[in-house]
């Protein structure tokens, strides 16, 4: 009891442990698991990341709809939903060319607002994907 008493008193003269959060940003470690980055030039369209992703946050959807040639992998476009992503980096491990085509950064996603249509936009993509399968 007296140790807590003394501790409470000495804490009065210490700098608080917590930070003034929205004003002072949190520094994330270099290896923090954050957003997935994508390099289109290096991608070979093997679609391994799409298969590996547990929540299905990576979709390769044809640009033209319906696609003229289903075998044409270059006609696909990479879509990534940071709000669905669980940042497990399964996709990066599955990628044959990690660091060039797909990599993990330590950044957090922006706060989504209604105008972004995060959900609706994504549902449309999922629907498109289903149609073309």
């Amino acid at each position: 009891m007296f140790t807590s008493f003394a501790k409470a008193f000495t804490n009065l003269f210490k700098k608080p442990q917590t930070i003034d959060y929205p004003l002072t940003p949190i520094v994330k470690d270099r290896d923090y698991r954050g957003l997935i980055g994508y390099g289109e030039e290096a991608c070979i369209y093997c679609l391994k990341c799409e298969k590996a992703c547990p929540p299905g946050a990576i979709l390769f959807v044809p640009v033209e709809n319906p696609p003229e040639n289903k075998q044409n992998k270059k006609g696909l476009k990479y879509h990534y939903n940071p709000y669905l992503c669980i940042y497990c980096s399964e996709c990066v491990r599955a990628c044959p060319k990690p660091d060039e085509a797909l990599w993990q950064s330590n950044k957090k996603p922006e706060v989504a607002v209604m105008d972004d249509r995060v959900n609706e936009g994504w549902f449309e993509l999922e629907k498109l994907k289903k149609q073309n399968d």
Binding site: D29, Y32, R33, I86, Y87, C88
Partner: peptide, 11 residues
């Protein structure tokens, strides 16, 4: 967090 890259969901 240092070890796994995340505070709560270690994956």
């Amino acid at each position: 967090e240092l070890l796994t890259g995340n505070r709560v969901q270690f994956d």
